[in-house]
Amino acid sequence: MAVDATLPYDDQNIFAKILRGEIPNRTVYEDDFALAFHDINPQAPTHVLVIPKGAYVCWEDFSAKASDVEIAGFVRAVGKVARDLGLVAPGYRLLANTGTHSHQEVPHLHIHLFAGQPLGPMLRP
């Protein structure tokens, strides 16, 4: 089920529950601004999700409402996860889905970090 990115934040979404410790995860990284953990249904040998700790539905919501400190902290966390996992070489892909056309499934901003194999073209024709 895709998410309408214009809807208000739902604090019962799975990532909100993970942030509250109600659902376990395999944490890769955590700081004041972000939590990174392994995806439970990986689409590549390495598939990590990085989520901000604030209540943001999507990238548009986050970029409009988050403080400069939150934005910088989150972006730095994504880069740190990639470096810490040794993904800078040979490379990795970041993906953030927003709204129904992109098939965003969880109404909490999340960045997919894919790596560990050649990933092919970004979009199929």
Rank of each mutant, 00 (worst) to 15 (best):
R20T: 07
A44G: 08
N25V: 04
P121R: 11
F114V: 02
A89K: 12
E70G: 05
A64F: 06
Q117I: 02
Q43G: 14
C58Y: 04
P121C: 01
G86T: 08
A64P: 07
E30H: 05
T27C: 06
D61Q: 10
T6K: 13
A36N: 10
D31R: 09
W59C: 12
Q12W: 02
R26D: 15
H112I: 05
D4A: 06
F37H: 13
I23A: 05
D39A: 08
F62V: 09
E105L: 00
K17E: 12
I111T: 11
I18T: 01
T100P: 01
D61N: 13
A55F: 03
D84A: 01
T27Y: 02
V28A: 01
D32F: 06
D32K: 13
V28R: 04
R20L: 10
A115E: 05
D39K: 08
H110M: 06
A5F: 10
P90K: 03
L7R: 09
G120M: 06
R93I: 00
A115P: 07
A5M: 08
I18A: 02
S67V: 09
G120C: 08
K80L: 11
M122H: 11
P125N: 08
T100S: 10
P125R: 05
F15D: 10
R26N: 15
T27Q: 13
L85D: 09
D32I: 09
Y92M: 04
D68N: 11
D32L: 12
P45M: 09
H103S: 12
R76A: 14
A5D: 10
T46F: 12
Y29H: 15
H110N: 00
E60P: 01
G86D: 08
D39G: 09
D68E: 15
V28G: 03
S63Y: 12
I23K: 09
D61H: 14
C58S: 15
F74I: 11
H47K: 10
D31N: 15
K80R: 14
G86W: 12
R26T: 13
K17W: 09
D31G: 08
P90Q: 07
D31S: 06
V69E: 15
P24D: 14
G54E: 13
I71V: 13
T27E: 15
V48P: 10
D11M: 04
A82M: 01
R20Y: 05
T98L: 01
A66K: 08
V75K: 03
F37R: 08
V69G: 00
T27N: 04
E70N: 09
Q43E: 15
V50L: 15
Y56G: 05
E22D: 14
H38Q: 07
R83L: 00
A77M: 11
N25S: 14
T6Q: 14
A77E: 04
N97H: 03
L94H: 03
R26I: 07
E105H: 01
A115C: 05
H38A: 10
V78W: 05
R76K: 15
G91N: 07
I18V: 12
V88P: 00
K80Q: 13
E22I: 11
T46A: 07
A82T: 14
V57T: 12
G120P: 11
A72F: 06
L87G: 05
E22T: 03
